[in-house]
Design a protein around this nucleic acid. Sequence first.
DNA 1: CTGTTAGCGCGTTCAC
DNA 2: GTGAACGCGCTAACAG
Lengths: 346, 346
Amino acid sequence: MPHMTIVEIAKKCGVGVSTVSRALNDHDDINPETKKKIMKVIRQTGYVPNNSARNLKRTDAKCIAVLIKGITNPFFAPMISIIEEETKKNGYALVLRHVGDGENEADVAVALEKEKRLRGIVFLGGNCFHQATKLKKLSVPVVFAATGNPVEGSINRSSYSSLAVDDRIESYNMVQYLISKGHRKIAIIAEGDEKKLSIGYKRLEGYLDALKAAGIPEKEERICLVDKVENLYSMENGYKATQKLLDKDDEFTAIFCVSDSLALGAMRALKDAGKRIPEDISIAGFDGLDMDNYLIPRLTTMQQPRELIAGETITLLFDIIEGKKQHQHVVFKGKLIEGESTQNFL
Amino acid sequence: MPHMTIVEIAKKCGVGVSTVSRALNDHDDINPETKKKIMKVIRQTGYVPNNSARNLKRTDAKCIAVLIKGITNPFFAPMISIIEEETKKNGYALVLRHVGDGENEADVAVALEKEKRLRGIVFLGGNCFHQATKLKKLSVPVVFAATGNPVEGSINRSSYSSLAVDDRIESYNMVQYLISKGHRKIAIIAEGDEKKLSIGYKRLEGYLDALKAAGIPEKEERICLVDKVENLYSMENGYKATQKLLDKDDEFTAIFCVSDSLALGAMRALKDAGKRIPEDISIAGFDGLDMDNYLIPRLTTMQQPRELIAGETITLLFDIIEGKKQHQHVVFKGKLIEGESTQNFL
DNA sequence: CTGTTAGCGCGTTCAC
DNA sequence: GTGAACGCGCTAACAG
């Protein structure tokens, strides 16, 4: 029996389609007996309602969507768990949507809103800036989580929310920490981005700020910008970048990597070059991935409060949906986790 | 203008809805001029067609779905990239669907097939067994990738495909490698699974096979089964398991972890216990994650040919869809990557 | 080449 | 409580 429809179920049960619909959607204006009978037939036949048809009609549909550019990024893993949990707890359905490399997130969002009758949208993600014009096409609340500089173009800041750390400041803090450890020749592995909007660039700015504040002149050969071949923040990129740094300048005593993955690559490259970590060179990362605390040596990093951000994001979204709150912009503080990959420069 | 429909676009353009539809779907039975005009209006108004309505009508819709239990698992990352690429290359649309902890993958698949008019389904994933009865409700080709023992219950093996390594054999090979290195007291961190169907259990069987073949008696205190608190194959589980092993028995000279994440946790635990890797204890993992080659020391692992599996999977699926091939079961060979985490036991 | 029309499968009015 | 009828937005015939 391929392709059952609600009509056939109705016939089988000797009732009208609307009655089946009532049973399906847990309406209370239905005789419990009838419902029981119908549900039994549904189970027996293995009937599954067509979601496309439902979405087309349904008006209520408590459903939100979470869009993630690069869902395989380990950074998102714990956030997704929390979002799933909280969404369920609030009685909403969740559409988790991966946004591929070629896709534009705002476009995906607009299409999804039409398709699913969403009540709200979360953009999860690191390194992206959305076009204001496209965003304006969305008619449901939008919240950006863990995104540095979410919107490009002119849009009223009160028409969306954002929850994130301040990449520039936290980066500043990390570099200042390195300076406080006596390092003055600090290299950085950051992101080559012409638009200067990416989080990688903001973290680079924080680095420059910190040097300036400490009166340390920046040196071009200590700034290594990786480019987007495949995965920007890959370990491989960190490895290669470190090799380049070592080629150009072997005086630096510390490397600040704008992501933990880059840092892992950097550690390996240093090791391969015969350098000891942290005795010869200190390494610091950014993000606070689960693995950091298991690496040998443990990685010093600027931990983002991912779980907190995820939780607050989803709570805020529901509050906005239900009219309890207005849009807002929340800045979280990073936590400097001191691992074994950094030490005093003597 | 919230909620535009194809009718309004048609009116605005002074044409019929079907003409707009033709423009939208790149049909060739339309005047290029008309099409241009329509597309312009569409762009200006920002109209986006409703996918639910499309899915409801469309009959052809070249679309496949990939379902992944735990999409955040780093093991899948490179596979997803390849699948996206290949699917696009073949002119198909792709629905990438994360299956949450509470969800049943087969159920999701059935619902998705109705909703999207799929032409084929890929189940990507490690540690799951699907119920035959539910699988039978699917009317499109199903391919399991990187799944050890995909189906539970009775179903004709010629009604689905599978592409994977043989976990038991590859596990056997790894343990035999350790034995060949002179290790005879080999501990294992595996998966506690009552059903004995999981890949973790199969890898445990491979371990036992290898010991037996070498005439090494198995010792209960060297077998540590982690349980599913949160993430089964987490680093934390590896860490704790190793601590337990050290408590119970400090004679073993090697640990075989049934996943690389567990191995990373194990490495850290050994380090914290003052053991040197590999001088005191050798560590071997399973999977071949990207990070393995960056760890210090580099992790010895049984690498699964993930990219190859992903590519072959998608190719096979399309061949089956197009009637060029029958269902088949392909077993891939693992590749033992010798890192620095293992050495001869002298 | 184009417009009109009939459903796709379902939820939701309405009467009953 | 229940059923008949309508329409969600769109594509695919079918005429013209």
